[in-house]
Design a protein around this nucleic acid. Sequence first.
DNA 1: CATATATATTACTTTATAGTAAGTTATTGC
DNA 2: GCAATAACTTACTATAAAGTAATATATATG
Lengths: 118, 118
Amino acid sequence: MPKRVKRRKSNTCILIMEKNIQCPLNYTMGLIGTKWKPLVLFHLLEGGLRSGLLQKKIPGISNKMFTQTVRELERDGLISRKVFPVVPPKVEYKLTDRGRSLEHILRSLDKWGSEDCS
Amino acid sequence: MPKRVKRRKSNTCILIMEKNIQCPLNYTMGLIGTKWKPLVLFHLLEGGLRSGLLQKKIPGISNKMFTQTVRELERDGLISRKVFPVVPPKVEYKLTDRGRSLEHILRSLDKWGSEDCS
DNA sequence: CATATATATTACTTTATAGTAAGTTATTGC
DNA sequence: GCAATAACTTACTATAAAGTAATATATATG
């Protein structure tokens, strides 16, 4: 949803999202409001995971969507990606501080969904 | 996002959303995870509003998207719709109890979005 | 009887998101 | 030298969400 995000050295982000800049709700939804993003973030709450394991925790996600999702989350500063130069390759993903600051929201969304429909 | 929702007399909802039924996070996102739904719900937090006023509070939303959004929110039991049989027509929307139970989430999404990018 | 009103709908197009399936890379161990 | 491995990547297709613009309704008012 967000069109582009630029990042300065200071790590301050300048958003170029037209209307979203005026709408915190849409801004947040633009960062996490896709089919797979909340799930990826949620599974990282308990700690970093290597790529394959993280993907296995999310049944139904395709290769393509997995990569695309983590790429965007990384681009938006919500997760970090660490590559270990070994063969076969090893990559670990974990939440950044910014990503962790969503913990409360992620757990609320999860809680609401499981309490509902009772 | 949700494929269908059936509702019993008891008001218990039976969800037919394939994977979502197993995933509270996706279930919640399926109900509120579109461009306009969080905004509509947010603006109703302060109390019921008649149709035109609610729509005016959401700059950029088209007629079509407004109607579609409130229809789905109503279908999913998050808002209620009251028609006054007058001419010209008058319609009021307000949160149901179920909708109000999202207040905490909506405010968190809004807060996160406004605190971020500082 | 034409206009204004508030709410809503429809047909159509565009854009965004997601899915499928095959291919790529680089090295180790047989 | 070829299969196995983990982590991607690409080309292509399909589906879903959103946008545009015109039209519908019912009636009271001038």
